[in-house]
Nucleic acid binder design. Structure first.
Lengths: 112, 112
DNA sequence: TTGTTTAATCGTATATTTGCGATAAACAAT
DNA sequence: ATTGTTTATCGCAAATATACGATTAAACAA
């Protein structure tokens, strides 16, 4: 694209879009699933389960941290990650604000 | 990237990732919001509200159609779009399957 | 110290997305 | 028939994302 127009939109829309983007890759969903099933796990465990190189997994983990979907703590030479449920709640809330409210009008004048 | 590894993951994870990707851009969220507020609207109305060129809006609309989040019908020279609530329900369901169940373990052994 | 393990980061190649103008296609109105 | 309106698609440029190997840094053990 010539220029990035993302900044032209409403902050709430941008926030929702960024959360959605964080879970818009199957690798990141698999990572979130792995962490949530074990309720916490170190980076190495995730790498073992994933069909990706260590550096790639690390990159995906950083994106999830940046989006606020997971938290990480350094534990010796290892890194431990767990789900940040606060952000998941926020995601569901914003998602609902945008779409569930309008769902009430579901059976009104629809053209298609 | 050298190769695309997305196919290596679970079909459910891929499906969820694709739905998330469809709403991972503020323009597409703004489009969805506009359509859901009016409960249906023609392409031109969306273009007027959006800070993007007509061709770009059309492209975003196509992506939303491909993801199944909206439906479109041709009405003379105009095109009418409305929300496909079925897909939104499916989205919430799959999302819940992945993450809400695990939320029960929220207060168990967390390392961070 | 030296070596080992673990994970983040850097550099790079390639794929995908985003955005626009130009064009085409379908129809309405004159 | 010609003109105008509306929207989809094509072709291109630029920005981002994805993936990997190599390197680095940090913690710890021998």
């Amino acid at each position: 694209m010539a220029v990035n127009k993302k900044g032209e939109f409403d902050p709430k829309e941008i926030e929702l879009a960024e959360l959605a983007k964080a879970i818009s890759h199957p690798a990141r969903i698999a990572i979130l699933k792995t962490i949530s099933e074990r309720n916490a796990c170190i980076c190495g465990e995730i790498v073992d389960v994933m069909p990706l190189a260590q550096s790639t997994v690390s990159q995906h983990l950083r994106e999830l941290v940046n989006a606020g979907l997971i938290k990480g703590t350094i534990d010796g030479p290892k890194s431990c990650y767990c789900i940040n449920w606060e952000t998941f709640k926020k995601f569901e809330m914003i998602f609902g604000q945008f779409f569930n409210k309008a769902k009430d009008f579901e059976d009104k004048r629809n053209c298609c």
